[in-house]
Computed example of a mutant assay.
Amino acid sequence: MTLNIAVLISGRGSNLQSIIDNVESGYIPNACVSVVISDKRDAYGLVRAMNHGINAVFIDPAVYESKKHFENALLEVLEKFSTDVLLLAGFMRILGSNLIKAYNNRVMNIHPALLPSFKGLHAQKQALEYGVKISGCTVHFVDEGMDSGPIILQKSVPVLDSDTEDSLSERILAQEHIIFPEAVKLFAEGRLDVKGRRVHIL
């Protein structure tokens, strides 16, 4: 049975590319990226999807009168493509309760910090301003809070005295491209068991 993956993006889609590459190589077993959805018309991630023959869908939030109506349109697309797991790869919106409940423990996000530290936007800038010596990235299941769901995998990255926001972001991104596909692989193999806030790897 094939695992149907949907990916939500808002930008260039480098994490999307790492997922596509790892599905195509077979590292993520018995899986297919069935649709990529963006809330930005010009997101380069949509081009990446089309380059690999993947359905690319733009849903314009501006034409919907509320977040709920926008997410209903999103749910329709996810159902159309028989989505099994939903990946947030640089999707810049917080999902509402209806969508979270529909895909309970089946929505994953990648965040460029070691959660629960530095939630929200500009996590790398937050880390530098705080003066931490170690930062990194986190893959977690999504709940109704901001970057607050159960943690699946984390990878640490040293913060150098010479780091800028760009240089730290670049090194963290390299690790994101490793642990996001790894988390999806574990999901595809049925090896993730969520008990409360803890995710056990079987």
Rank of each mutant, 00 (worst) to 15 (best):
2 T>P: 12
2 T>E: 14
6 A>I: 03
6 A>Y: 02
7 V>W: 01
11 G>C: 06
15 N>R: 08
16 L>A: 08
18 S>H: 06
20 I>W: 05
20 I>Y: 03
20 I>K: 05
24 E>D: 11
26 G>F: 09
28 I>A: 06
30 N>F: 08
34 S>T: 14
38 S>D: 11
39 D>I: 05
42 D>V: 03
43 A>H: 14
44 Y>M: 11
46 L>P: 07
50 M>R: 15
61 P>A: 12
66 S>G: 06
66 S>N: 03
68 K>I: 14
70 F>W: 10
73 A>F: 03
74 L>H: 01
75 L>P: 02
79 E>V: 13
87 L>G: 03
89 A>C: 12
92 M>G: 03
93 R>L: 12
93 R>N: 04
95 L>M: 07
95 L>S: 06
98 N>K: 15
98 N>H: 07
99 L>D: 01
100 I>W: 00
101 K>N: 11
102 A>M: 05
103 Y>R: 03
104 N>Q: 14
107 V>P: 02
110 I>H: 08
116 P>S: 04
121 L>A: 15
122 H>Q: 13
125 K>S: 11
126 Q>E: 03
128 L>R: 01
132 V>M: 09
133 K>P: 02
135 S>A: 15
137 C>G: 10
146 M>N: 07
146 M>C: 11
153 L>K: 10
153 L>V: 10
154 Q>K: 08
155 K>I: 11
156 S>N: 13
156 S>T: 15
157 V>M: 13
157 V>Y: 07
158 P>C: 06
161 D>A: 13
161 D>M: 08
165 E>T: 15
170 E>C: 06
172 I>M: 12
173 L>F: 07
173 L>T: 09
174 A>L: 13
174 A>T: 12
175 Q>Y: 12
175 Q>W: 11
176 E>G: 10
176 E>W: 08
183 A>R: 11
183 A>M: 03
186 L>S: 04
197 R>P: 00
